[in-house]
């Protein structure tokens, strides 16, 4: 294995709740190769967004990264200073957020919001060069007549177009890693499809690694090469996308897959995982999923490590769903 562009080792991020530091994510290990697209999948509250924000160094008080390393091209971001982090953010590693209606500042023009992303990392860049690069970036993400659109304000764009602007901003400095936190969830399906295929193309062209955070397995299926499934702040299963979708090992992953209503016959009741995602200060001991799991036994309350089920294939379960030997 060559050196990955991004590797997260033993990450733990805690939040102070009623005077106690409670881990929102723990024991998170993941890596992204150059140009690779990985999926980070889980329900709301599974810790996938916290993982993304931790990588960006955007965890605010009362939250804090308490353990682990985040290596970007070998440089540890957890121990990096505030100013160094700022230099890396937006330049070497960029993020796209869920709601395109909220990510752009309503009172600033698009050119202001794009050009500042360039000048923040290169104070000597002249306005003309910056403008040209912004215009090209808008064109690259499929925004028609980019020259005019630069002068527009966010409210003059549709949701899909705003997300394209956000993507263009994220790509401006040709980052090594892009974290995309459910960027298509708020968009309708046709726009979602366009943006997915464009992201795929852009990553291939620029060689950026992409971490696609989502709860939507259908998105993961077409876009990613490898998938990490998160539950209760931990990675419970990982592997190549086809393996995960065809032969889930963890009962939670199977539950997630069954929750997608694609094989349903009309009139048949839809499948749902019983129970609720646990609150972060009331995590069950051992396997976090065992209170909702049909296969749970007393052993599920003990410590369960990630164990290998083949090359690049791991799961955190004592009752793995493996039929064949």
């Amino acid at each position: 294995m060559t050196n990955p562009a991004l590797s997260v080792i033993g990450l733990e991020t805690c939040f102070r709740i009623r005077g106690r530091m409670v881990p929102a994510v723990s024991d998170v290990d993941l890596f992204v190769d150059k140009g690779e697209i990985i999926g980070l999948v889980g329900e709301s509250g599974s810790g996938k967004s916290v993982t993304g924000l931790s990588i960006m160094g955007l965890i605010d008080k009362p939250g804090e990264i308490t353990k682990g390393k985040i290596l970007l091209n070998g440089e540890d971001l957890v121990s990096a200073g505030k100013e160094r982090l700022r230099q890396i953010r937006g330049a070497r590693i960029a993020m796209i957020f869920q709601d395109p209606m909220m990510t752009l500042n309503p009172v600033l023009r698009i050119d202001t919001q794009m050009m500042e992303a360039l000048s923040a990392h290169d104070s000597r860049i002249d306005a003309e060069t910056a403008r040209t690069r912004c215009r090209d970036a808008l064109g690259q993400v499929g925004i028609p007549s980019p020259e005019e659109r630069l002068k527009a304000y966010p409210h003059q764009f549709s949701g899909g177009m705003r997300q394209r602007v956000a993507i263009a901003i994220a790509l401006l400095n040709r980052p090594d890693i892009i974290i995309a936190d459910e960027p298509t969830t708020a968009l309708d399906v046709t726009i979602q499809g366009q943006i997915l295929s464009e992201m795929q193309k852009l990553c291939r062209d620029t060689g950026a690694g992409l971490v696609w955070i989502t709860h939507d397995l259908t998105v993961v299926a077409g876009l990613t090469t490898r998938v990490y499934v998160m539950y209760g702040g931990r990675i419970v299963e990982l592997g190549a996308v086809d393996d995960i979708l065809d032969r889930p090992i963890h009962p939670y992953t199977r539950g997630l897959i069954r929750s997608v209503p694609w094989h349903n016959r009309p009139g048949e009741p839809l499948y749902q995982i019983p129970g609720m995602t646990p609150a972060i200060d009331r995590m069950p001991a051992g396997c976090r999923f065992h209170p909702r799991c049909a296969l749970a036994t007393p052993e599920c309350r003990g410590d369960i490590p990630l164990s290998a089920f083949g090359p690049g294939r791991f799961a955190r379960c004592v009752h793995p769903l493996v039929e064949d030997s």
């Binding site: 960006m56 955007l58 700022r86 230099q87 890396i88 953010r89 937006g90 330049a91 960029a94 993020m95 957020f97 709601d99 909220m102 990510t103 752009l104 500042n105 309503p106 600033l108 202001t112 500042e116 992303a117 923040a120 990392h121 956000a166 901003i169 994220a170």
Partner: peptide, 22 residues
């Protein structure tokens, strides 16, 4: 608390720029 402030930080803007402009 707005999302666009978080996005501005994700762009790597300086604190001064975020406060005085955004």
């Amino acid at each position: 608390q707005m999302e666009y402030i978080r996005f501005a930080r994700a762009k790597g803007l300086t604190d001064a720029r975020i406060v005085f402009v955004h």
